[in-house]
Design a protein around this nucleic acid. Structure first.
Lengths: 210, 210
DNA sequence: AAACTATACGAACGGTCGTATTATTAGATC
DNA sequence: GATCTAATAATACGACCGTTCGTATAGTTT
Protein backbone atom coordinates (compact mmCIF):
# COMPACT_ATOMS: atom_id res chain seq x y z
CA UNK A 1 0.00 0.00 0.00
CA UNK A 2 1.64 3.19 -1.20
CA UNK A 3 0.62 6.41 0.52
CA UNK A 4 0.30 9.23 -1.95
CA UNK A 5 2.25 12.32 -1.00
CA UNK A 6 1.18 15.78 -2.04
CA UNK A 7 4.28 17.87 -2.65
CA UNK A 8 2.44 21.00 -1.62
CA UNK A 9 1.53 19.54 1.76
CA UNK A 10 5.07 18.31 2.22
CA UNK A 11 6.39 21.76 1.57
CA UNK A 12 3.88 23.26 3.99
CA UNK A 13 4.83 20.79 6.68
CA UNK A 14 8.49 21.55 6.26
CA UNK A 15 7.89 25.27 6.52
CA UNK A 16 5.83 24.70 9.61
CA UNK A 17 8.62 22.68 11.19
CA UNK A 18 11.18 25.34 10.37
CA UNK A 19 8.94 28.01 11.84
CA UNK A 20 8.32 26.05 15.03
CA UNK A 21 11.98 25.18 15.43
CA UNK A 22 12.77 28.88 15.43
CA UNK A 23 9.73 29.66 17.56
CA UNK A 24 10.76 27.47 20.49
CA UNK A 25 14.21 29.04 20.51
CA UNK A 26 12.85 32.56 20.45
CA UNK A 27 10.25 31.77 23.09
CA UNK A 28 12.78 30.17 25.41
CA UNK A 29 14.67 33.45 25.51
CA UNK A 30 12.02 36.14 25.02
CA UNK A 31 8.89 34.31 26.08
CA UNK A 32 5.77 33.26 24.24
CA UNK A 33 4.64 36.86 24.24
CA UNK A 34 7.94 38.14 22.89
CA UNK A 35 7.49 35.62 20.11
CA UNK A 36 5.94 37.63 17.28
CA UNK A 37 4.83 36.64 13.81
CA UNK A 38 6.66 39.50 12.18
CA UNK A 39 9.89 38.60 13.92
CA UNK A 40 9.57 34.97 12.90
CA UNK A 41 8.96 35.98 9.30
CA UNK A 42 11.92 38.33 9.24
CA UNK A 43 14.41 35.92 10.79
CA UNK A 44 13.33 33.10 8.50
CA UNK A 45 12.97 35.34 5.44
CA UNK A 46 9.33 34.43 5.00
CA UNK A 47 6.33 36.65 4.59
CA UNK A 48 4.28 37.60 7.60
CA UNK A 49 1.13 36.42 5.89
CA UNK A 50 2.68 33.08 5.07
CA UNK A 51 3.72 32.44 8.64
CA UNK A 52 0.39 33.62 9.98
CA UNK A 53 -1.54 31.32 7.63
CA UNK A 54 0.00 28.28 9.27
CA UNK A 55 -1.57 29.04 12.62
CA UNK A 56 -4.48 31.42 12.11
CA UNK A 57 -3.91 33.26 15.35
CA UNK A 58 -1.18 34.24 17.75
CA UNK A 59 -2.57 31.97 20.43
CA UNK A 60 -2.55 28.98 18.10
CA UNK A 61 1.07 29.75 17.25
CA UNK A 62 1.85 29.81 20.94
CA UNK A 63 0.10 26.51 21.53
CA UNK A 64 1.87 24.92 18.58
CA UNK A 65 5.15 26.22 19.95
CA UNK A 66 4.50 24.65 23.35
CA UNK A 67 3.56 21.36 21.68
CA UNK A 68 6.79 21.47 19.68
CA UNK A 69 8.76 22.16 22.84
CA UNK A 70 7.05 19.24 24.53
CA UNK A 71 8.24 16.90 21.78
CA UNK A 72 11.81 18.14 22.11
CA UNK A 73 11.59 17.80 25.87
CA UNK A 74 10.30 14.25 25.61
CA UNK A 75 13.19 13.33 23.38
CA UNK A 76 15.85 15.06 25.45
CA UNK A 77 14.70 14.13 28.95
CA UNK A 78 12.13 11.35 29.01
CA UNK A 79 13.49 9.03 26.36
CA UNK A 80 17.04 8.72 27.75
CA UNK A 81 15.62 7.95 31.18
CA UNK A 82 13.22 5.36 29.85
CA UNK A 83 16.11 3.60 28.17
CA UNK A 84 17.19 2.64 31.66
CA UNK A 85 15.38 -0.13 33.56
CA UNK A 86 12.75 0.95 36.08
CA UNK A 87 14.05 1.49 39.58
CA UNK A 88 16.47 3.78 41.32
CA UNK A 89 18.68 3.77 38.23
CA UNK A 90 15.91 5.29 36.17
CA UNK A 91 15.18 7.93 38.81
CA UNK A 92 18.82 8.88 38.70
CA UNK A 93 18.91 8.76 34.90
CA UNK A 94 15.89 11.04 34.75
CA UNK A 95 17.62 13.54 37.01
CA UNK A 96 20.82 13.39 35.00
CA UNK A 97 18.92 13.77 31.74
CA UNK A 98 17.08 16.77 33.09
CA UNK A 99 20.16 18.58 34.32
CA UNK A 100 21.93 17.77 31.08
CA UNK A 101 18.97 19.08 29.11
CA UNK A 102 19.14 22.34 31.00
CA UNK A 103 22.91 22.65 31.01
CA UNK A 104 23.56 21.94 27.37
CA UNK A 105 20.83 24.41 26.45
CA UNK A 106 18.59 22.27 24.32
CA UNK A 107 16.66 25.52 24.34
CA UNK A 108 18.95 28.54 24.30
CA UNK A 109 17.08 30.17 27.17
CA UNK A 110 17.30 27.18 29.47
CA UNK A 111 14.28 25.07 30.28
CA UNK A 112 11.45 26.12 27.98
CA UNK A 113 8.75 25.08 30.42
CA UNK A 114 10.23 26.83 33.42
CA UNK A 115 10.18 30.01 31.39
CA UNK A 116 6.75 29.58 29.81
CA UNK A 117 5.12 28.32 33.00
CA UNK A 118 6.20 31.39 34.90
CA UNK A 119 5.12 33.61 32.05
CA UNK A 120 1.61 32.18 31.94
CA UNK A 121 1.25 30.95 35.50
CA UNK A 122 -0.88 33.85 36.66
CA UNK A 123 -2.89 34.29 33.48
CA UNK A 124 -5.98 32.57 32.20
CA UNK A 125 -6.58 31.01 28.82
CA UNK A 126 -5.64 28.12 26.63
CA UNK A 127 -1.87 28.59 26.90
CA UNK A 128 -1.96 28.58 30.68
CA UNK A 129 -4.21 25.55 30.69
CA UNK A 130 -2.02 23.57 28.35
CA UNK A 131 1.12 24.43 30.27
CA UNK A 132 -0.61 23.34 33.46
CA UNK A 133 -1.53 20.08 31.76
CA UNK A 134 2.03 19.46 30.61
CA UNK A 135 3.30 20.24 34.08
CA UNK A 136 0.85 17.81 35.58
CA UNK A 137 1.89 15.19 33.09
CA UNK A 138 5.55 15.74 33.92
CA UNK A 139 5.12 15.60 37.68
CA UNK A 140 3.08 12.45 37.23
CA UNK A 141 5.91 10.94 35.24
CA UNK A 142 8.44 11.73 37.96
CA UNK A 143 6.13 10.28 40.59
CA UNK A 144 5.63 7.15 38.54
CA UNK A 145 9.35 6.71 38.05
CA UNK A 146 9.83 6.98 41.80
CA UNK A 147 6.97 4.55 42.41
CA UNK A 148 8.69 2.02 40.19
CA UNK A 149 11.81 2.25 42.35
CA UNK A 150 9.70 1.79 45.44
CA UNK A 151 7.98 -1.22 43.91
CA UNK A 152 11.42 -2.60 43.11
CA UNK A 153 12.26 -2.35 46.80
CA UNK A 154 15.07 0.12 46.18
CA UNK A 155 13.45 3.22 47.61
CA UNK A 156 11.27 4.00 50.62
CA UNK A 157 9.54 7.35 50.30
CA UNK A 158 6.34 9.21 49.53
CA UNK A 159 6.48 9.47 45.73
CA UNK A 160 4.53 12.72 45.62
CA UNK A 161 6.74 14.33 48.18
CA UNK A 162 9.98 13.10 46.67
CA UNK A 163 8.89 14.10 43.16
CA UNK A 164 8.19 17.59 44.44
CA UNK A 165 11.65 17.81 45.90
CA UNK A 166 13.56 16.44 42.94
CA UNK A 167 11.66 18.67 40.57
CA UNK A 168 12.41 21.63 42.82
CA UNK A 169 16.13 20.90 42.52
CA UNK A 170 15.89 20.68 38.75
CA UNK A 171 14.13 23.98 38.31
CA UNK A 172 16.24 25.77 40.85
CA UNK A 173 19.48 24.71 39.18
CA UNK A 174 18.08 25.85 35.84
CA UNK A 175 17.19 29.30 37.10
CA UNK A 176 20.44 29.72 39.01
CA UNK A 177 22.40 28.82 35.88
CA UNK A 178 20.70 31.70 34.10
CA UNK A 179 21.07 34.20 36.89
CA UNK A 180 24.44 33.34 38.38
CA UNK A 181 26.51 32.80 35.28
CA UNK A 182 29.70 33.03 37.32
CA UNK A 183 28.74 30.04 39.45
CA UNK A 184 29.88 27.17 37.26
CA UNK A 185 29.23 24.64 39.99
CA UNK A 186 25.49 25.04 40.19
CA UNK A 187 24.64 21.82 38.37
CA UNK A 188 27.10 19.94 40.52
CA UNK A 189 25.39 21.35 43.55
CA UNK A 190 22.02 20.19 42.26
CA UNK A 191 23.42 16.73 41.55
CA UNK A 192 24.76 16.60 45.07
CA UNK A 193 21.37 17.49 46.54
CA UNK A 194 19.61 14.91 44.40
CA UNK A 195 22.09 12.18 45.31
CA UNK A 196 21.89 12.99 49.00
CA UNK A 197 18.11 13.02 48.94
CA UNK A 198 17.92 9.72 47.08
CA UNK A 199 20.50 8.11 49.34
CA UNK A 200 18.48 9.10 52.38
CA UNK A 201 15.53 7.21 50.90
CA UNK A 202 17.39 4.21 49.56
CA UNK A 203 16.71 0.88 51.24
CA UNK A 204 19.66 -0.96 52.73
CA UNK A 205 21.71 -2.98 50.29
CA UNK A 206 20.55 -1.21 47.14
CA UNK A 207 23.47 -0.55 44.77
CA UNK A 208 23.79 3.14 44.01
CA UNK A 209 23.68 4.08 40.32
CA UNK A 210 26.16 6.94 40.58
CA UNK B 1 15.97 72.05 62.32
CA UNK B 2 13.00 72.17 60.04
CA UNK B 3 13.31 70.50 56.61
CA UNK B 4 11.59 72.53 53.93
CA UNK B 5 9.18 70.54 51.84
CA UNK B 6 8.48 71.45 48.26
CA UNK B 7 4.84 70.70 47.55
CA UNK B 8 5.61 70.01 43.90
CA UNK B 9 8.16 67.37 44.78
CA UNK B 10 5.80 65.83 47.29
CA UNK B 11 3.11 65.54 44.68
CA UNK B 12 5.56 64.01 42.23
CA UNK B 13 6.73 61.50 44.76
CA UNK B 14 3.19 60.46 45.55
CA UNK B 15 2.36 59.97 41.90
CA UNK B 16 5.49 57.94 41.49
CA UNK B 17 4.56 55.72 44.38
CA UNK B 18 1.08 55.17 43.02
CA UNK B 19 2.51 54.32 39.62
CA UNK B 20 5.04 51.87 41.04
CA UNK B 21 2.46 50.25 43.30
CA UNK B 22 0.39 49.48 40.24
CA UNK B 23 3.46 48.56 38.21
CA UNK B 24 4.59 45.76 40.52
CA UNK B 25 1.13 44.23 40.46
CA UNK B 26 0.90 44.36 36.68
CA UNK B 27 4.41 43.02 36.25
CA UNK B 28 3.83 40.14 38.65
CA UNK B 29 1.05 38.92 36.39
CA UNK B 30 2.02 40.06 32.89
CA UNK B 31 5.76 40.49 33.27
CA UNK B 32 8.04 43.49 33.07
CA UNK B 33 7.61 43.49 29.31
CA UNK B 34 3.83 43.29 29.52
CA UNK B 35 4.06 46.31 31.76
CA UNK B 36 3.45 49.24 29.40
CA UNK B 37 3.41 52.96 30.01
CA UNK B 38 0.13 53.39 28.19
CA UNK B 39 -1.53 50.70 30.25
CA UNK B 40 -0.27 52.21 33.48
CA UNK B 41 -1.58 55.61 32.44
CA UNK B 42 -4.97 54.24 31.49
CA UNK B 43 -5.49 52.19 34.64
CA UNK B 44 -4.42 55.08 36.87
CA UNK B 45 -6.19 57.72 34.78
CA UNK B 46 -2.98 59.60 34.17
CA UNK B 47 -1.46 60.80 30.94
CA UNK B 48 1.07 58.70 29.13
CA UNK B 49 3.49 61.58 28.97
CA UNK B 50 3.15 62.24 32.69
CA UNK B 51 3.93 58.64 33.59
CA UNK B 52 6.80 58.51 31.15
CA UNK B 53 8.35 61.69 32.53
CA UNK B 54 8.87 60.02 35.88
CA UNK B 55 11.22 57.45 34.45
CA UNK B 56 12.58 58.71 31.15
CA UNK B 57 12.63 55.29 29.55
CA UNK B 58 10.92 51.95 29.64
CA UNK B 59 13.99 50.30 31.06
CA UNK B 60 14.21 52.80 33.90
CA UNK B 61 10.55 52.11 34.68
CA UNK B 62 11.32 48.41 34.79
CA UNK B 63 14.29 48.95 37.08
CA UNK B 64 12.26 51.19 39.36
CA UNK B 65 9.56 48.53 39.44
CA UNK B 66 12.04 45.84 40.48
CA UNK B 67 13.40 48.14 43.18
CA UNK B 68 9.88 48.76 44.44
CA UNK B 69 9.21 45.02 44.47
CA UNK B 70 12.42 44.48 46.41
CA UNK B 71 11.22 46.83 49.13
CA UNK B 72 7.90 45.03 49.41
CA UNK B 73 9.70 41.69 49.49
CA UNK B 74 12.02 42.86 52.23
CA UNK B 75 9.07 43.92 54.31
CA UNK B 76 7.03 40.79 53.71
CA UNK B 77 9.72 38.12 53.96
CA UNK B 78 12.93 39.39 55.49
CA UNK B 79 11.63 41.60 58.27
CA UNK B 80 9.33 39.01 59.89
CA UNK B 81 12.16 36.49 59.90
CA UNK B 82 14.63 38.94 61.39
CA UNK B 83 12.23 39.62 64.21
CA UNK B 84 13.06 36.10 65.40
CA UNK B 85 16.36 35.40 67.13
CA UNK B 86 19.15 33.95 65.01
CA UNK B 87 19.24 30.18 64.86
CA UNK B 88 17.05 27.38 63.67
CA UNK B 89 13.99 29.37 64.68
CA UNK B 90 14.92 32.12 62.25
CA UNK B 91 15.57 29.66 59.45
CA UNK B 92 12.11 28.27 60.01
CA UNK B 93 10.58 31.75 60.31
CA UNK B 94 12.18 32.74 57.01
CA UNK B 95 10.69 29.70 55.33
CA UNK B 96 7.28 30.36 56.82
CA UNK B 97 7.42 34.02 55.85
CA UNK B 98 8.36 33.11 52.29
CA UNK B 99 5.59 30.59 51.83
CA UNK B 100 3.13 32.99 53.41
CA UNK B 101 4.34 35.76 51.10
CA UNK B 102 3.70 33.56 48.10
CA UNK B 103 0.44 32.08 49.32
CA UNK B 104 -1.29 35.27 50.39
CA UNK B 105 -0.31 36.83 47.08
CA UNK B 106 1.55 39.90 48.25
CA UNK B 107 1.94 40.22 44.48
CA UNK B 108 -1.15 39.01 42.62
CA UNK B 109 0.92 36.89 40.28
CA UNK B 110 2.78 35.06 43.04
CA UNK B 111 6.45 35.73 43.72
CA UNK B 112 7.49 38.79 41.72
CA UNK B 113 11.10 37.69 41.50
CA UNK B 114 10.41 34.16 40.37
CA UNK B 115 8.44 35.66 37.51
CA UNK B 116 10.83 38.46 36.60
CA UNK B 117 13.94 36.31 36.97
CA UNK B 118 12.62 33.78 34.52
CA UNK B 119 11.55 36.53 32.17
CA UNK B 120 14.99 38.13 32.09
CA UNK B 121 17.17 35.17 32.94
CA UNK B 122 18.31 34.54 29.38
CA UNK B 123 18.56 38.17 28.31
CA UNK B 124 21.27 40.72 28.71
CA UNK B 125 21.04 44.23 30.02
CA UNK B 126 20.49 46.26 33.13
CA UNK B 127 17.28 44.51 34.18
CA UNK B 128 18.86 41.08 34.02
CA UNK B 129 21.87 42.31 35.90
CA UNK B 130 19.87 43.88 38.67
CA UNK B 131 17.68 40.81 39.06
CA UNK B 132 20.81 38.67 39.24
CA UNK B 133 22.14 40.97 41.92
CA UNK B 134 18.95 40.77 43.96
CA UNK B 135 18.95 36.99 43.62
CA UNK B 136 22.54 36.85 44.82
CA UNK B 137 21.66 39.06 47.73
CA UNK B 138 18.71 36.85 48.63
CA UNK B 139 20.61 33.57 48.45
CA UNK B 140 23.34 35.14 50.56
CA UNK B 141 20.76 36.08 53.14
CA UNK B 142 19.42 32.55 53.31
CA UNK B 143 22.94 31.18 53.63
CA UNK B 144 23.74 33.63 56.37
CA UNK B 145 20.59 32.72 58.27
CA UNK B 146 21.57 29.08 58.06
CA UNK B 147 25.13 29.88 59.14
CA UNK B 148 23.76 31.57 62.24
CA UNK B 149 21.93 28.40 63.17
CA UNK B 150 25.09 26.40 62.62
CA UNK B 151 27.05 28.84 64.77
CA UNK B 152 24.40 28.42 67.45
CA UNK B 153 25.04 24.70 67.37
CA UNK B 154 21.51 23.89 66.25
CA UNK B 155 22.27 22.81 62.71
CA UNK B 156 24.98 20.79 61.00
CA UNK B 157 25.04 21.32 57.25
CA UNK B 158 26.71 23.02 54.31
CA UNK B 159 24.99 26.44 54.29
CA UNK B 160 25.35 26.88 50.53
CA UNK B 161 23.90 23.46 49.83
CA UNK B 162 21.07 23.80 52.31
CA UNK B 163 20.21 27.30 51.10
CA UNK B 164 19.99 25.96 47.56
CA UNK B 165 17.58 23.27 48.68
CA UNK B 166 15.33 25.44 50.82
CA UNK B 167 15.13 28.07 48.11
CA UNK B 168 14.27 25.35 45.61
CA UNK B 169 11.32 24.31 47.77
CA UNK B 170 10.11 27.89 48.02
CA UNK B 171 10.16 28.56 44.31
CA UNK B 172 8.72 25.20 43.41
CA UNK B 173 5.77 25.65 45.75
CA UNK B 174 5.18 29.08 44.28
CA UNK B 175 5.10 27.84 40.71
CA UNK B 176 2.98 24.82 41.54
CA UNK B 177 0.44 27.04 43.27
CA UNK B 178 0.05 28.97 40.04
CA UNK B 179 -0.09 25.96 37.77
CA UNK B 180 -1.98 23.41 39.82
CA UNK B 181 -4.76 25.54 41.27
CA UNK B 182 -6.69 22.42 42.24
CA UNK B 183 -3.88 21.20 44.51
CA UNK B 184 -4.64 23.14 47.67
CA UNK B 185 -2.05 21.19 49.63
CA UNK B 186 1.03 22.39 47.78
CA UNK B 187 2.20 24.78 50.48
CA UNK B 188 1.71 22.10 53.08
CA UNK B 189 3.82 19.79 50.98
CA UNK B 190 6.57 22.40 50.78
CA UNK B 191 6.41 22.94 54.53
CA UNK B 192 6.74 19.23 55.03
CA UNK B 193 9.83 19.05 52.81
CA UNK B 194 11.43 22.00 54.56
CA UNK B 195 10.74 20.56 58.00
CA UNK B 196 12.08 17.15 57.03
CA UNK B 197 15.19 18.63 55.50
CA UNK B 198 15.86 20.81 58.53
CA UNK B 199 15.21 17.96 60.93
CA UNK B 200 17.73 15.83 59.11
CA UNK B 201 20.33 18.52 59.73
CA UNK B 202 19.37 19.41 63.29
CA UNK B 203 21.85 18.54 66.00
CA UNK B 204 20.66 16.28 68.80
CA UNK B 205 18.77 18.01 71.57
CA UNK B 206 17.82 21.11 69.62
CA UNK B 207 14.19 22.08 70.26
CA UNK B 208 12.23 22.21 67.03
CA UNK B 209 10.50 25.52 66.30
CA UNK B 210 7.42 24.00 64.64
C1' DA C 1 3.65 90.74 41.38
C1' DA C 2 7.21 88.71 38.46
C1' DA C 3 10.38 85.10 37.41
C1' DC C 4 11.33 80.54 37.85
C1' DT C 5 10.71 75.45 38.50
C1' DA C 6 8.49 70.91 38.67
C1' DT C 7 4.60 68.07 37.42
C1' DA C 8 1.22 66.67 34.35
C1' DC C 9 -1.41 66.85 30.12
C1' DG C 10 -2.42 65.98 25.21
C1' DA C 11 -1.27 65.43 20.71
C1' DA C 12 1.81 63.53 17.53
C1' DC C 13 5.79 60.58 15.62
C1' DG C 14 7.64 56.29 13.61
C1' DG C 15 7.39 51.56 14.39
C1' DT C 16 5.54 46.98 15.43
C1' DC C 17 1.80 44.23 16.75
C1' DG C 18 -2.05 40.73 15.22
C1' DT C 19 -5.17 40.14 11.64
C1' DA C 20 -7.70 40.29 7.07
C1' DT C 21 -7.85 40.46 2.13
C1' DT C 22 -6.19 39.83 -2.29
C1' DA C 23 -2.72 38.13 -5.53
C1' DT C 24 0.75 34.87 -7.06
C1' DT C 25 3.04 30.63 -7.45
C1' DA C 26 3.67 25.66 -7.43
C1' DG C 27 1.89 21.12 -7.46
C1' DA C 28 -2.17 17.70 -8.37
C1' DT C 29 -5.86 16.13 -11.12
C1' DC C 30 -8.37 15.44 -15.10
C1' DG D 1 -2.88 21.80 -21.34
C1' DA D 2 -6.83 23.43 -18.54
C1' DT D 3 -8.69 23.34 -13.99
C1' DC D 4 -8.49 23.00 -9.25
C1' DT D 5 -6.09 23.37 -4.79
C1' DA D 6 -2.72 24.44 -1.30
C1' DA D 7 1.20 27.30 0.22
C1' DT D 8 3.17 31.65 0.12
C1' DA D 9 3.57 36.59 -0.84
C1' DA D 10 2.04 41.36 -0.82
C1' DT D 11 -0.49 44.92 0.96
C1' DA D 12 -3.38 47.24 4.11
C1' DC D 13 -5.81 48.13 8.59
C1' DG D 14 -6.50 49.63 13.30
C1' DA D 15 -4.45 49.27 17.84
C1' DC D 16 -0.83 49.90 20.74
C1' DC D 17 4.08 50.56 21.60
C1' DG D 18 7.98 53.88 23.49
C1' DT D 19 9.23 58.43 22.88
C1' DT D 20 9.20 63.54 21.98
C1' DC D 21 7.43 68.04 22.38
C1' DG D 22 4.74 72.17 23.32
C1' DT D 23 1.71 73.80 26.74
C1' DA D 24 -0.89 74.44 30.98
C1' DT D 25 -0.97 74.27 35.93
C1' DA D 26 0.60 74.59 40.50
C1' DG D 27 4.09 75.73 43.91
C1' DT D 28 8.48 78.30 45.18
C1' DT D 29 11.47 82.12 45.29
C1' DT D 30 12.72 86.87 44.99
Amino acid sequence: METRVDGRLVRGDQTRRIVLAKAVDIASVDGLEGLSIGRLAKELELSKGGVFAHFGSKEELQLATVRAARRIYAEAVVEPAFAVEPGLGRVWALSEAWLDYSERRVFPGGCFFAKASHEYGARTGAVHDYLAEVNHEWIGLVEQTISEAIAAGELAADPVQLAFELNAYYDSANLASLLRTDDGAIYQRARHSIRARLESATTAGTPLPW
